[in-house]
């Protein structure tokens, strides 16, 4: 009798583990674009929107400290604020952006200064989530199975509860 809930738990565990594994196994992290743009020191260094095509909602990734000299607009422009603030020769920071299809990209921007020229390198990785084909219907299989397992567990508990209640009532009557 006590074996049954452990079976249910292990089944849902295994299933959940496999489902989780599926969603991460497919994700490959590869840079899909590296662009170097050399400019002399004016304002806009890079237009991320133009380079990567149609991204929006650009924010600085959490945990990244943006150097004073750089400003990033939500539309995807990386702007140099003023020449005087350029202290170091190399700047590295990370930027998070989302695409119109609700994909999230994490973009590493590296700015290097050689004298008067600034070279900006962009590497963008897509954070693979289970959007796309999974969300189109296969996710409901996951939902259905987990719900079924849960409902089976609850039914078992209810039946057990009822049985124990009857047993206790019988014991009360006897004594």
């Amino acid at each position: 009798m006590k074996l049954f809930p452990t079976i249910i738990f292990s089944a849902s565990l295994l299933f959940g583990g496999m489902a989780v594994a599926q969603t991460t196994a497919d994700s490959t992290v590869q840079p899909n674009e590296a662009v170097a743009v050399a400019k002399s020191i004016p304002d806009t260094l890079v237009d991320l929107n133009k380079q990567l095509g149609g991204i929006m909602d650009v924010t600085v990734a959490k945990g990244t400290i943006l150097p004073e000299a750089i400003e990033i607009t939500p539309a995807g422009l990386i702007i140099l604020k003023s020449e005087d603030l350029l202290k170091a020769d190399v700047y590295n920071f990370e930027v998070k952006a989302s695409s119109p299809e609700n994909e999230v990209y994490i973009i590493t921007v590296k700015i290097r200064r050689d004298g008067e020229k600034l070279t900006t390198t962009i590497i963008s990785d897509k954070i693979d989530m289970a959007t796309g084909f999974r969300k189109e219907g296969k996710i409901y299989v996951v939902v259905a199975i987990s719900l079924i397992l849960f409902v089976v567990l609850v039914t078992y508990l209810v039946l057990l509860d009822r049985r124990i209640r009857k047993l206790n009532a019988k014991l009360e009557n006897r004594s």
Binding site: G16, V20, T24, S27, I127, V143
Partner: peptide
Amino acid sequence: VLLLLYAIPMAWLGSVSVQVILHETIRN
């Protein structure tokens, strides 16, 4: 039971914050 009947489907269907390394496993 009601709370979990809500929470278990939403665990799969709800929107989650997107993080590197974690990807969908954040649902765990």
